[in-house]
């Protein structure tokens, strides 16, 4: 380990800004960003599936609150949602005495909560649109073959809706990756936070921000690559057969 550090330091010897120390900052920022984005997307999607189903319910008292939730969270900036959760969390009665306080005292978890609520709202509407676009004939065939509503949802409606939602969901993932940069304003050392730190310390905006921009660019392309592969596999049924 020591040898590696020396090697690094020597390699970067001629460079005043990108020392092993600042690179470690970027590295920690990268892991924080990935954790935040991955966890919020994961929890968000788990929330979005039932919400998207409920959003199409014929009972207004199920449908309307979900619609209000997605309308508010999609209609306001994530930054405000972040501020509200970050500064507002202490107002929940008794949270400071509860076992959750050590968790919510750190900025990471309020940010995770705000991001999750935000992406869940967008994802709900993406899934809702995909579910609504299920071919009527396919639903009719499922009914005609004796499928119950839950079975039909599980076997026919959701699998085909998820596939159709894939391109839009890929955009949402990239959107979340980029939007997560606001985490840096509530003291989280994510990628952008690391870049700001390096900028402030060395007064080197170009190096600090262009470097982080390149990292984001790589992440964005990786996400696009993964989704393109997924689409090729899961949307095979929409393409003419090869060969």
């Amino acid at each position: 380990m020591e040898a590696l550090t020396t090697w690094w330091t020597e390699l970067l010897g001629g460079n005043a800004i990108f020392t092993a120390n600042t690179l470690e900052f970027y590295w920690n920022g990268l892991t924080t960003t990935i954790q935040l984005v991955f966890l919020s997307l994961l929890i968000g999607i788990l929330l979005a599936v039932p919400l998207a189903i409920g959003r199409g319910s014929k009972h207004p008292w199920i449908r309307m609150p979900i619609y209000a939730y997605t309308y508010v969270f999609r209609g306001t900036p994530l930054l405000i949602q972040l501020y509200l959760v970050y500064y507002g969390v202490v107002f929940f009665e008794g949270i400071q005495e509860s076992m959750f306080w050590p968790i919510f005292r750190e900025a990471f978890y309020p940010a995770l909560m705000a991001f999750t609520l935000n992406t869940a709202a967008y994802t709900t509407e993406i899934f809702r649109g995909a579910i609504k676009n299920t071919a009527k004939g396919e639903i009719e065939a499922a009914r005609a073959y004796g499928m119950s509503k839950p079975l039909m949802l599980r076997r026919i409606v959701l699998p085909s809706a998820f596939r159709r939602a894939l391109p839009a969901y890929g955009n949402e993932v990239i959107f979340m990756l980029h939007a997560s940069a606001v985490a840096s304003v509530v003291t989280i050392m994510d990628l952008t936070g690391a870049a700001y730190y390096v900028y402030a310390r060395f007064y080197a905006p170009f190096q600090a921000f262009i470097f982080v921009a390149l990292i984001y660019l790589c992440l964005t392309f990786s996400v696009m690559f993964v989704f393109r592969r997924l689409e090729r596999r899961l949307l095979a049924h929409l393409r003419p057969r090869e060969g």
Binding site: A179, V182, P205, Y216, L217
Partner: peptide
């Protein structure tokens, strides 16, 4: 491609802080 691959906030910081310099 570049604009759509980088967070708005990073671009904003780059242009604002970098622009002055």
């Amino acid at each position: 491609t570049l604009i759509r691959g980088v967070p708005d906030l990073v671009l904003m910081m780059l242009l604002f802080y970098g622009g002055q310099i």
